[in-house]
Amino acid sequence: MLVLQAIIDGILVGGFYALMAGGLTLVFGVMEIVNFAQGIMVVLGAYLSYALFSHLSIDPFLSLVITMPGMFLIGVAVYWSMIKPIKQDRVIMSLLVMFAVGTIAEGILDLVFTSNLVQISTPYVNNSFTIGSLIFPDIYVYAFLMSVVLLAGVYYLLYRTRFGRSLRASMQNPTAARLVGINTDWVSAYTLGIGVAMAAAGGMVFGLTNSFDAASSYDLISRLLAIVIFGGFGSLSGALIASVLMLVIQDVVAVVWSPTWGQTTFYVILILILLVRPQGLLGRKAVRAQ
């Protein structure tokens, strides 16, 4: 029963990790850019919801109506001001630039919110309901449903709209996409915006379920990168599967063995999988290049 509970927890929490990791993998798929600042963007999203809740008492779930468009604009602005001017060696340079952006953001967040741990504490934060002997915390269920809706929205955007078609074309072959008249710059800018907006939504849940400060971003980004690598760079469904797997593995190991070994086990499994499939679960096979 404990194991079943652990699996359910893993699936529920995995949902919003998929949201954060999905933003990362999408940006990578379109631009070959590892958005190292995704961790701090999640924390920024959490802080924004926290501020809106504690100062204006706006419900965190409702605050997404404000934070997601706001973070979308931040993503677009970061693309035009930071990524676009990079002329050469984009893959590595963008990683470093995004690291620098993350450092600046971390400094600003620490300055504004101090480095004390905070948590968004809505009245329903500790509510839960039970089915049989299984416990379902309310926020995890809400968060899971929200993640499913948002991920479905992203899927719709990717596969049912004109913008999605341009985005997938830019993913497959940027040069050819440009040749058929797609403005890949704007596609990239919007993609980074969407990725960062997804971080905002994930961050809101992160802020509800964890106490955090700006330094939480390091732990977050390492988990998100591990998820993205596990699922395969650029694959949204891979990210979804990998985040659920990661959380399930962690929770099950925590129950049957010891909580301290949960994350280690996940990393070890990650390495074993990569030895067999270097491109990750659902990643495209890497082309011949280093």
Partner: peptide, 10 residues
């Protein structure tokens, strides 16, 4: 055994 980004993350 792996290259590029995968190597970095690994």
């Amino acid at each position: 055994r792996v290259r590029r980004h995968t190597f970095i993350i690994l």
